[in-house]
Computed example of a mutant assay.
Amino acid sequence: MSGKNWDRVPIDAQSVDAPLSTAAIFLVVTVGSDKAALSTAASVLGELDDLVKNVGFRDLSGRLSCIAGIGAELWNRLSPNRRPRELKPFAPIEGAAHSAPSTPGDLLFHIRAERPDMCFELERILLDSLGGSVSVVDEVSGFRYFDARDLLGFVDGTANPTGLDLPASALVGDEDGDFAGGSYVVVQKYLHDMAGWKETPTHVQEEIIGRTKIDNIEIDDDDKPRKSHKSLATIEDDAGNEYDILRDNMPFGRPGQNEFGTYFIGYSRYLWVIEKMLQRMYVGEPPGAYDRLLDFSTPHTGTTFFAPTRPMLQKLVEGVQQ
């Protein structure tokens, strides 16, 4: 769904449109409250493109990229009088059976590449550069699992927009012209109950997800009182227009620690679209008929960011350095 006729991905946008990668790192940090910490963080943001190039040149086929997202509180410190229209902290959600927590986060670095060592090296350099100006809140290394499946065994991201639908769904348009080309970003780290999921019959798993497990065929549950994850995550406005988001979820895990999860990251033109999706999942549609996937997947984080265009990022940096 679009309010603007996109004919290309804006060249000044961050790499939201980068292809799904083999490896990724999701790094969330908070920035110290003093001016020196803010200045250091701003300086690193200003050098981000150069840092990516310095690592990426070693293997151009590795397709290294990094998106920087800025949380509402840090945005207010960087630009107190000018902010994206919908940007605000992640709002916790309390459902009858499950809840979604809100956790801190000033900066998100979404690092992607075809080689995990390149992701590792860029993260190492970023943290060395940021030094004591930040505290790490969360750090997750994700990987592609077979044919883009999650650890529950289902293909993830099938409904992602492609072609010209991608910028129309993921990037802000004329409705907030000062921030056009940017993107709202919501992240959540989910941990799975693999034992409970394994005990669930495959046909029930498919009803929960809304797709067949082997061949990824969509299941029609329009006439059923209990909607699938697929249906609850499909968002329409009052006029019946459907709104998409861009997901770049990644599996992660440590079998030795019995840790198995999915890192959800959604890019959206409108923050309200992701908020409505999460409300439907946790509260239910109708209320009480929540997403049964939450019986097996528990969120441990929840944070909202805005990924501005490259020129806007530079303006924020220059405002601090003046």
Results as ranks from 00 to 15, higher is better:
133 S>P: 10
133 S>A: 15
134 V>D: 05
136 V>Y: 03
140 V>T: 15
140 V>R: 07
141 S>N: 09
142 G>A: 05
142 G>S: 00
143 F>M: 09
143 F>A: 06
145 Y>G: 01
145 Y>I: 04
146 F>S: 07
146 F>R: 09
147 D>S: 13
148 A>M: 06
149 R>C: 14
150 D>W: 02
150 D>E: 15
151 L>H: 04
151 L>Y: 02
152 L>D: 11
154 F>L: 08
154 F>M: 06
155 V>E: 14
156 D>P: 10
156 D>C: 01
157 G>K: 00
158 T>H: 00
159 A>K: 06
160 N>E: 01
161 P>I: 11
163 G>A: 09
163 G>M: 11
163 G>T: 11
164 L>M: 14
164 L>F: 13
164 L>K: 12
164 L>Q: 09
164 L>G: 05
164 L>S: 10
165 D>P: 02
165 D>E: 15
165 D>C: 03
166 L>G: 12
168 A>R: 15
169 S>M: 10
170 A>G: 10
171 L>A: 13
174 D>E: 15
174 D>W: 01
174 D>I: 11
174 D>R: 13
176 D>Q: 09
176 D>H: 06
179 F>L: 09
179 F>N: 06
179 F>A: 01
180 A>F: 08
183 S>L: 07
183 S>F: 08
187 V>Y: 00
187 V>I: 14
188 Q>V: 00
190 Y>H: 08
192 H>A: 15
192 H>Q: 10
194 M>L: 14
194 M>V: 14
195 A>V: 13
197 W>K: 07
197 W>S: 05
197 W>F: 12
197 W>D: 08
198 K>I: 01
199 E>S: 15
199 E>G: 11
199 E>W: 08
200 T>W: 06
200 T>C: 15
203 H>M: 06
205 Q>I: 02
206 E>V: 03
206 E>A: 03
206 E>S: 04
207 E>Y: 12
208 I>G: 04
209 I>L: 12
211 R>T: 01
211 R>Q: 01
214 I>C: 04
214 I>T: 11
216 N>V: 04
217 I>K: 10
219 I>G: 01
219 I>W: 02
219 I>T: 02
221 D>S: 14
222 D>E: 14
223 D>E: 14
223 D>L: 14
224 K>H: 09
225 P>K: 06
226 R>V: 12
228 S>F: 00
229 H>S: 07
231 S>T: 14
232 L>E: 11
232 L>H: 11
233 A>F: 03
236 E>D: 03
236 E>M: 03
236 E>C: 08
236 E>G: 07
237 D>M: 05
239 A>S: 14
244 D>H: 13
244 D>N: 13
245 I>W: 02
247 R>K: 08
248 D>F: 00
248 D>G: 02
249 N>G: 03
249 N>W: 04
250 M>Q: 01
252 F>G: 05
